[in-house]
């Protein structure tokens, strides 16, 4: 870590008092300062939202980079203490310890990929929505997966996340991770020929969850639309007000 130092060079300049008397000038300066301070505070708030969105994206993308290497301890460290993870049709695992258990179970208890294992797991299409007070956030993402075991199996996977995040002591963490499995199908033949190979069940048959799945999502070729965490940013199309053509 680089040495932390702030080099502040305060500049003290004469401000020209333009009032009728020195007192009036000071009053005007004070009012001006208060107005400036209000604008600076507003700017800080707006900039904070940029920072929050950036940090949440870095967090989720880092989640993906650790997941695909099966670095479970690094993944678990991204979660808040009382966070939940819900994976396809496995149900809900609650708390960081259970999340770690769940993650290890994904890979038969091993950390790191086995020889011949592929676990590509791209984190794409973020739609981050911050709460009013800026202490929590939600985001939708889409994952593409290229997974399998050399000589045995290759799978295409895809599905959206609807996740929640919390800022604790200034640090954004995942508070709720929910991945919805749209497809997980064999490479040979793909989604036109195969239903989901695991019916959406990854580990819950050997590691029962703490709570049942939030939705009855079924599995491909059943399609399920996870509710959006965001409102339409402009507004839905309304034929009555659209100047519809004949």
């Amino acid at each position: 870590m680089k040495q932390l130092f702030f080099l502040i060079l305060p500049i003290l300049l004469l401000t020209s008092a333009c009032g009728d008397s020195p007192d009036a000038g000071r009053g005007a300066d004070a009012a001006e300062s208060a107005a400036l301070q209000a604008r600076v505070d507003a700017l800080k708030t707006r900039l904070g939202k940029i920072r929050d969105a950036n940090e949440i994206k870095r967090l989720q993308r880092s989640f993906g980079y650790y997941m695909e290497e099966a670095l479970w301890d690094e993944v678990a460290a991204l979660f808040a203490e009382d966070a939940t993870i819900e994976w396809a049709r496995d149900g809900v695992y609650r708390g960081r310890n259970r999340i770690r258990e769940f993650l290890y179970a994904l890979n038969s208890g091993e950390q790191g990929l086995r020889e011949g294992q592929l676990n590509e797991y791209l984190q794409l299409m973020p739609v981050v929505t911050l709460s009013e007070d800026g202490s929590t956030a939600k985001a939708r993402w889409r994952a593409i997966m290229l997974t399998g075991q050399y000589g045995e199996q290759a799978l295409w996977g895809e599905g959206p996340f609807e996740n929640e995040y919390v800022r604790e002591d200034g640090i954004w963490k995942i508070s709720r991770l929910h991945w919805h499995q749209s497809i997980l199908v064999p490479y040979e033949g793909g989604w036109a020929r195969h239903e989901d190979v695991n019916h959406g069940v990854w580990v819950s048959d050997t590691l029962p969850p703490d709570a049942a799945p939030t939705y009855d999502e079924g599995w491909w070729p059943t399609t399920f639309l996870p509710p959006f965490s965001f409102a339409n940013p402009v507004g839905r199309y309304n034929p009555a007000s659209a100047g519809a053509r004949p």
Partner: peptide, 26 residues
Amino acid sequence: YPAVSVPPFHYQNPVSVPYDPLAGAV
């Protein structure tokens, strides 16, 4: 692949070692 290797990261875990853009700033 099929060998396993982890491309090194230029950064540390974002929760364990948070990034502060102002740290060290002049």
